[in-house]
Every structure is written in structure tokens, then in C-alpha cells.
Nucleic acid binder design. Structure first.
Lengths: 334, 334
DNA sequence: CATCTCAATGTAATCGTTTGCAATCAGTTT
DNA sequence: AAACTGATTGCAAACGATTACATTGAGATG
């Protein structure tokens, strides 16, 4: 790799002038600038980002930690962030916490040494604690919130979404509606459960703990929870399920199939988060859709706001949309 | 952020000693080492990777460019690479080419300035050209090959996989077997087409151009191609399809449904690449499964081999596996 | 006791940029 | 002609680490 020294030598100027010719063209005489440009071109010169960042104390990188890159929702978040960052000339360091606080801690530690100028994180239960090692870094929490008062947040209206899902089921005539959500230490699970509660109460139904399950976010937790709920005796078994995230929804659908329940005749299902899987499964799934890519974009924009010195943390909430497909219908008489 | 200067000052030693205490403990007296360690601890010292890399001319980072992070296959590749790199203390810069050579060129340019020690890339048609700007960088091509003689490659046995898929269909009694693959400038598409050819020839069937379609890798290209093939008059219409990648397979399945064809009664389908979607669609899809995560792991290991100076490029080919589910069956008499 | 050895530490150069400050020089202005 | 201006350019100091080389001093050796 050729350095700016080489360029300067070839153009017969000092490194200072070479540097200025490339990054502050207006400070340099026309002829000189052209000579330097040409030299740079000839040598295929590419500035060494490390040296530049070191000197300028500005790396033009941001960190991004998602909880599960294999989950299409998170992949979309990541793409939204990364595309937006790139537009602004920023490079994204992408890490995966795999929902494990320890892995997240490691990612944060690694990140620290690379001096990102900001961090976007889909928090786990450990995030609030881990972020204390980065006291002055602008942080945006994405999709979930950790309770850290310093951080900006970009989320969806989980309560409203869950409420809409549950209302939809109630409107179809369901009275025993099961709930399956993720871990109780993740904000989205709690909020979606709250929306479910609200809807039941508003309809004069009393939330019943036996119909509610929570677990990890994984497919098999969803499948286990659904199997439990659906194995209840006929009169007590829920006639509909609201499942709080896409992975668990897959599990729930498979469990229902396993038990020979027809959807929607024997069981209605609403999932949270749309996906191609939801669109193409049979029957196509009724869902609460989230603007995943836009969440990522907005998180990144929020972060750039903070970088430009928009002092106080902001909280942006996007809305969700109920998409009615064919996995929901009136309950079977039983 | 505190620097090694701060640590040195607090421990009352020179920066040289502080540095040694932290990275070459054996060179430093016990007592001093402890003092330095403690000081580092107290200040929450984290070495500045930029400065270190600049001095050591070794960044401990690698670049990874995948073609489509939203495609679960690529997400798995990425995870395999990243997990493996992390184990070795390397950080991965992940970029997305979105199958566009220009985006890939930009990614490579950005990467250059960050001085990665190696690059893993899922090539597009432009890769061979773009890599010329990085003449001395160890490169591993993943999943596809660009024809660059410098690069190591980690791929699957596409010819064999496609042959197995086609043989399976032939074995079931199909004679008019349609082929849908990606762009002809991507090695995997070409190889899978070759495998399909081989199988037909070996069975004494003559490959028929009207039954073969290629397009971009996207779902709608698959759907368009399938619609064309399946709209042929009854006697000419293929009774089975072999589709060369996961995205296009989705499109093909949806097109078949759209046309009211039952799978596998009216149409058998074999896809390339297994996925959750393939497992859970109805009926579950017969596929050629690829070890996606392992591909990523091996690519990373190959790269580390090159970094440690294993001079010549190596070529690793993993095998695929035919998984017979329920999307394939004997042809309907017609 | 002089000398040698070797472990422990310090001094200062280095990596490749950017940038504050000083120097140069041509063209005005007085 | 002296002094001033302002546009170009160069010199050298940073940024924060690592490391070649020099220094120190304590114990071993003759």
C-alpha cells in the first residue's frame, strides 16, 4: 500500500500539501491539486483509515449489536442501519449477541477498542449494566429498551400492536385466547403481554394465567408452549393464540399441525412480525407487521442526530399494522 | 478514554513498561506487573486498537462481503465466518453487495482503507476485476468462484448436488424436468445446470432448452420462470422442476400454487439449499441441503491458513445431501 | 575488587495521517 | 521603496500504541 508520503514525493510537494489537496481542495492551488490527484490516482492511493482516525479522533464507524442475525427481522434491522450509515460515509461494526448477555458484553468490549462514535443495540437483559463501561458514547436502543436513561430508543408500539391482535381475535368471537411471549426481562415481551391484557380487560374478559406462557425467543420454546396450551382438555383449551414474536410463531404453528389442529378452523393464530414465512405458509398468517427496515434506518438517523450534538436522548415509536390473512377465523363451536 | 500513558503514570512506570506488562507479562518483574495491571483495571483501560494496528501493521480484522444478508443462506455463511473469526480474536467487517458489482466495488474500496488482513467474499460477476485493487491480500471465495487464480475457494459440490436432485426426479419416473437457475455469470448456476445436464444424459434423456430458464436470484425471477414453464400445454409442460437456489424456489412454489397445481401430484419440486421455509412449507420440500454454517467456518479457517503463510491457494469442496421430503413423487399420468 | 552477565526498566523512534504555525512570495498599497 | 496583504506551501508536532536500543543495577565470577 502506498502512503501519502509516496503521493507527496511523486507530486513533488510536502505531505501536508498532499493531504490538503485531497481533503481540502480549496486550500491548494489548482495546478498543485491536479498534480497530487494524478499522483494519488497513479499509485492507487487509499488513505489509511487507522492513521487518520487516530489523528482526528474520529473513526467514522458505529457499532451495531443485534440479538440474532439469523432472525430475518434482525437481519432487516441490520440492513436498515448499515445502508443508512453507509450513505453517511460511516462503516458499521456488526456483532451478534445471540441473546446472550455475556456475548453482548464481549462484543461491547471488543467494540470499545475500535472507538466507534456511536452504538446501536438490540438490548438483552444485561445491556444496562454493560453500557456503563461506555459512559460517553451515544447509544440508540433498537426494538427493545433496557431502561438505560441515557439512551435514545427506536421501538414499535408493542402495546398497541398486541392490543390490535387480541382485539381482532375477540372480534371474531374468541373468548379463550392463549398468549405466548418471550422472556419477561425483554421489554417487547412485557409490553406485548400488557397489550393483550388491555384488550381482554376492555372486552370484559379476565386474563387467565393458565393461558399465558413465556419462554426464550426460540422456535422450540414457542412449540413447547403451544403444545402445553393446546393439550388442555377441550373446553379449557384456547381457541386462538397470540404469539409475541416470529420465531415462536413458527414453533406454535408446527405444534398445532403436530396435534392435528386445523388452522383456522380449530385454532386461530396471530403472530407478531411479518415475514416471508408468514406470507407463504398455509394458510397465510395473520400478523402484526412491523416496519423492520425502517426501524433500522430511524435508529441510525437518531444516532447521527446524537453525533451532531442533539443533546438529549429521544424516543421514537413507530406504529404496527394488523394484516389479516387466513390463519384467523371465528371459533369452532365446542 | 484513558491511554497507556495514564496507566503508566498511575503505576509510576514508563509507557514501555506498561505496554510490556500488559502484552508480554514475562518481560516484567512481578511487582511492577501487578501495579500496572491494577492501574489498568482502575482506569478501565482498553488499548486503542487503531494505534496498535498502525504500529504493528496488523489490524486483526478481516473483511466479509456477502451477496445478500437477508437470504438465510448468506446469513448463515456470515455467522459461520464471524463466529470463527471471533474465536481467533479477529473482528469481521461485514458488507453486503446485494448482488450488485458496483456495490461490491464500493465495499472493497471502503475495506481497503481499513487494512483487513484478509477477505472472504461471495463473488458477483465483477469480483475478479475488483480484486485487482488488492493484489496482496489473501482472499477466500465462498460458495461461488470468480475464476481468480489467486484466491482460495470453499464451495459445495454443485454438480453432484444438481445431479442427485435430477437423478431423484428421474428415478421417480419424470421425463420432462424443468430447470430454473440463477444468472449464468455466477458459477453456482452454471455448475448446477451442468449437473442437471449430466443426469439427463446419463439417463438417456436429451436436455431440452425450452425446459431451462435462468434469471436473477430473486423470488420473483423464480416465480416468473416457473409460470412460463408451467403454462405450457399439458403434454409439454414439465412434470417436475429442479430449482437452483432457495429464493427462486419460493417463487416457483408460489407460482405453482397460483396456477392451481398440486405438489407433488401435479408437479414435483426439488430445491437447492435447505431452510426452515423448506422444512415447514406444505408439503415439506425435497431439497439438496448445503452445510451453510460450515461453509463459513471453513472459509474462515482457510483464510487463517493463508494468513499463517500457507502459500498456495487451496480449494475445498463440501458435499451436499439430498433430503427427500414430500414435494416430490411419481408423475401424474397425462 | 574488578568485571561480567542478565534481568528490568527507560528513551526515543516509529506507524500514516492531519493541522497549527511559520515561511515564502507575488501583488498592492502608501 | 517599504510595508502590508493574502494565497500557497512546508515544517514539525501531534494521535496512542509497540519495540529496538540504551541504561541501570544487583548478583555471580575470576
Amino acid at each position: 500500500m502506498s502512503s501519502i508520503q509516496d503521493v507527496a514525493a511523486l507530486a513533488k510537494v510536502s505531505t501536508a500539501t498532499a493531504s490538503r489537496a485531497l481533503s481540502r481542495p480549496e486550500m491548494v492551488a489548482d495546478g498543485t491539486r491536479k498534480r497530487v490527484m494524478k499522483a494519488a490516482q497513479q499509485l492507487g492511493y487509499q488513505p489509511n483509515v487507522l492513521a487518520r482516525s487516530l489523528r482526528q479522533r474520529e473513526t467514522r464507524t458505529i457499532g451495531l449489536i443485534v440479538a440474532d442475525i439469523l432472525n430475518p427481522f434482525h437481519a432487516l434491522l441490520a440492513k436498515g442501519v448499515q445502508d443508512t450509515a453507509e450513505e453517511q460515509g460511516y462503516v458499521t461494526f456488526l456483532f451478534n449477541s445471540d441473546e446472550q448477555p455475556e456475548k453482548e458484553a464481549r462484543a461491547i468490549d471488543t467494540l470499545r477498542g475500535h472507538l466507534p462514535q456511536g452504538l446501536i443495540v438490540v438490548p438483552t437483559s444485561g445491556t444496562r449494566e454493560h453500557l456503563k463501561t461506555l459512559p460517553n458514547l451515544p447509544v440508540v436502543e433498537l426494538d427493545r429498551v433496557s431502561g438505560n436513561p441515557q439512551a435514545s430508543t427506536v421501538t414499535v408500539d408493542n402495546v398497541g400492536g398486541a392490543r390490535a391482535a387480541t382485539d381482532h381475535l375477540i372480534g371474531l368471537g374468541h373468548r379463550r385466547i392463549g398468549l405466548i411471549v418471550g422472556q419477561q426481562d425483554i421489554s417487547t415481551a412485557v409490553e406485548r403481554q400488557a397489550g393483550y391484557h388491555d384488550a381482554l380487560k376492555a372486552a370484559g374478559l379476565s386474563p387467565c394465567p393458565e393461558l399465558m406462557r413465556s419462554g426464550q425467543h426460540r422456535e422450540d420454546d414457542g412449540s413447547r408452549a403451544a403444545t402445553e396450551l393446546l393439550s388442555m382438555p377441550a373446553g379449557q383449551r384456547p381457541t386462538a393464540l397470540f404469539v409475541g414474536n416470529n420465531e415462536m410463531t413458527v414453533g406454535a404453528v408446527l405444534a398445532a399441525r403436530e396435534l392435528g389442529l386445523r388452522i383456522p378452523e380449530d385454532l386461530s393464530i396471530v403472530g407478531f412480525d411479518d415475514s416471508r414465512w408468514a406470507q407463504t405458509m398455509l394458510p397465510p398468517l395473520t400478523v402484526i407487521a412491523q416496519p423492520a427496515y425502517e426501524l433500522g434506518v430511524h435508529a441510525c438517523e437518531q444516532l447521527f442526530g446524537l453525533l451532531r450534538g442533539a443533546g438529549r436522548p429521544a424516543h421514537l415509536q413507530l406504529s404496527t399494522e394488523l394484516i389479516i390473512r387466513h390463519s384467523t377465523g371465528p371459533p369452532h363451536r365446542s
